[in-house]
């Protein structure tokens, strides 16, 4: 393989039900930086039907080019069709980097593409850097529940592929930019339809937008029970916040798994993060350390969570939270 034939940074633009996933925009933000440093184009590859508007959006968020396959069969994600189209485009255009969001689709798709192309793939990256001389992508991702960080290189195969955790990279400011939209063939055959989606069951309980939430009230083992978790929900509601939970709290059955924040759960970066009864195990901290303002409430003044908090309160939650709720209600009533 002649590595020099491979040029350009690609981002898989994931759409769900006609809307772009936010992580795709985040990847464009990072991809733009990488492409500029490598002095190459940033290309988004989008599969979907009637997605012209999305192509423009991708350009507005930083793409130089959008490769778009337009076909009714691409409206829904399918492992086989998506793998086939993207892998064949890569073989034709030879990008040096392909970034994919570590979503349920991305994690299904990226390994399949990597295997087909025989190239390397890192998972759930939280940081990407480039060595401009060697053009090697330094892919850093957590292992062992965030207890270790590993930096991975793909020295001899191309493209260098990485899935990236949603919520970690920052999208660019949206602005009107110039870019090229290139139509690519879908070329779907019957044999690519081996798996079909019969129906979708949306569950509101699944944390819609926990990653995007601006405010999160989160609970750990110190909360103590399902009932108390409901009280936390009340506090969250008054603050206009989403409820999050640690892995232990989820495993204790106090919160559903979609609420889990941390290495095995979601990565969040809200403006406000209130950690209640959370000791601050690394596995949790990796998922929320970039919160803008962190307030920690715990009975144990030695809990590690206080080390990463801006404000700390050492108190019994069972007394403090009802009081907070009461004070908030009074404050809201007074306004």
């Amino acid at each position: 393989m002649s590595l020099n034939e491979y040029r350009g940074v690609w981002v898989f633009a994931e759409q769900n039900d006609g809307r772009l996933r936010r992580v795709s925009l985040e990847l464009l933000g990072k991809g733009r930086e990488l492409a500029d440093r490598l002095r190459v184009d940033l290309v988004a590859i989008l599969l979907g039907e009637d997605a012209g508007k999305l192509c423009t959006e991708l350009i507005d968020y930083g793409a130089d080019k959008v490769l778009w396959a337009d076909d009714p069969e691409l409206r829904c994600y399918r492992t086989d069709t998506y793998t086939k189209i993207i892998a064949s485009q890569i073989m034709e255009h030879k990008p040096e980097i392909l970034l994919v969001g570590a979503t349920y689709v991305g994690r299904d798709l990226a390994p399949r593409i990597a295997r087909r192309l025989g190239t390397g793939l890192s998972a759930d990256c939280t940081s990407l850097d480039i060595d401009e001389e060697t053009r090697l992508l330094q892919q850093t991702c957590p292992a062992f529940g965030g207890n270790l960080m590993v930096t991975i290189l793909t020295p001899k195969e191309r493209p260098q592929m990485a899935t990236v955790q949603p919520g970690v990279m920052q999208p660019l400011q949206k602005s009107t930019r110039k870019g090229e939209i290139i139509s690519i063939p879908a070329d779907i055959e019957h044999k690519d339809m081996r798996v079909s989606r019969l129906r979708v069951i949306e569950e509101t309980r699944r944390g819609i937008g926990l990653e995007q939430a601006e405010r999160i009230v989160s609970g750990g083992m110190g909360i103590g029970s399902v009932e108390n978790f409901k009280m936390l929900g009340k506090l969250a509601e008054l603050l206009g916040a989403e409820v999050g939970a640690t892995r232990n709290a989820v495993e204790a059955g106090w919160a559903s798994s979609d609420r889990m924040i941390g290495q095995t759960g979601k990565t969040v970066r809200p403006t406000l993060y209130i950690a209640c009864g959370i000791s601050g195990a690394i596995q949790h901290i990796v998922g929320m350390k970039d919160s803008e303002l962190t307030i920690a409430i715990s009975k144990d003044p030695k809990a590690p969570i206080f080390q990463i908090a801006d404000y700390g309160i050492v108190a019994d939650l069972h007394q403090l939270i009802p009081l907070l709720i009461q004070e908030l209600l009074r404050y809201k009533g007074a306004r």
């Binding site: 390397g120 960080m149 590993v150 793909t154 195969e157």
Partner: peptide, 10 residues
Amino acid sequence: ATKMSKIYKP
């Protein structure tokens, strides 16, 4: 295809 170049405690 991948090589580990660094491993560390965050």
